Amino acid sequence: MKEFVVYTALRIALFLGSLALVLGIWWVVAGEVPVLWAVIIAFLLSGLGSLWLLNGPREAFAMRVQERAEKASQAFEEMKAKEDAD
Score class of each variant (00 low, 15 high):
80 K>S: 10
30 A>L: 14
43 F>W: 10
26 W>K: 09
17 G>K: 07
42 A>R: 00
83 E>W: 13
85 A>H: 15
10 L>Q: 04
42 A>Y: 02
29 V>A: 08
4 F>E: 14
77 E>C: 04
14 L>I: 08
26 W>Q: 00
24 G>H: 10
27 W>G: 00
33 V>S: 04
42 A>V: 03
54 L>E: 09
84 D>E: 15
21 L>C: 05
15 F>I: 01
59 E>G: 01
73 S>M: 07
10 L>I: 05
58 R>K: 15
66 Q>V: 05
10 L>P: 00
22 V>S: 02
29 V>N: 02
82 K>S: 09
27 W>I: 00
2 K>P: 13
48 L>R: 04
30 A>E: 15
69 A>T: 04
54 L>R: 10
64 R>Y: 09
37 W>I: 09
71 K>W: 01
61 F>T: 08
39 V>K: 00
44 L>P: 00
1 M>D: 11
17 G>C: 10
79 M>W: 05
36 L>T: 15
16 L>M: 07
71 K>R: 08
27 W>L: 06
19 L>W: 08
52 W>V: 08
75 A>E: 03
70 E>P: 00
17 G>P: 14
21 L>W: 15
32 E>G: 03
21 L>R: 10
13 A>P: 01
25 I>A: 06
82 K>P: 00
8 T>R: 11
67 E>R: 05
74 Q>K: 08
28 V>Q: 13
14 L>P: 13
35 V>C: 06
28 V>P: 02
41 I>G: 03
32 E>R: 13
17 G>E: 10
27 W>P: 01
21 L>P: 11
70 E>W: 00
18 S>H: 11
59 E>S: 07
33 V>I: 14
4 F>V: 09
80 K>V: 02
15 F>W: 09
41 I>E: 04
53 L>Q: 01
23 L>A: 04
52 W>C: 03
27 W>M: 08
35 V>R: 06
49 G>P: 13
15 F>R: 08
16 L>Q: 03
76 F>M: 11
75 A>T: 05
55 N>D: 10
60 A>I: 02
85 A>Q: 14
60 A>V: 01
2 K>G: 09
86 D>H: 15
81 A>W: 04
63 M>Q: 10
51 L>A: 02
59 E>K: 15
22 V>D: 02
86 D>K: 15
51 L>W: 05
31 G>D: 09
16 L>C: 07
18 S>T: 12
77 E>T: 08
3 E>H: 02
17 G>Y: 11
49 G>E: 10
1 M>V: 12
51 L>Q: 02
44 L>T: 07
10 L>M: 11
26 W>I: 02
75 A>G: 04
83 E>I: 13
80 K>A: 12
9 A>V: 13
2 K>L: 10
24 G>A: 01
18 S>M: 06
81 A>R: 12
63 M>I: 05
55 N>C: 03
25 I>V: 05
59 E>R: 15
30 A>T: 13
80 K>F: 03
22 V>L: 01
22 V>G: 00
28 V>T: 11
68 R>F: 07
74 Q>N: 06
67 E>D: 08
55 N>Y: 12
13 A>F: 15
58 R>H: 15
28 V>A: 12
61 F>C: 07
54 L>I: 12
61 F>E: 12
25 I>M: 11
44 L>V: 14
73 S>Q: 11
32 E>C: 03
70 E>Y: 01
76 F>I: 05
27 W>T: 03
44 L>F: 13
8 T>W: 04
54 L>N: 12
25 I>W: 15
68 R>T: 07
59 E>T: 06
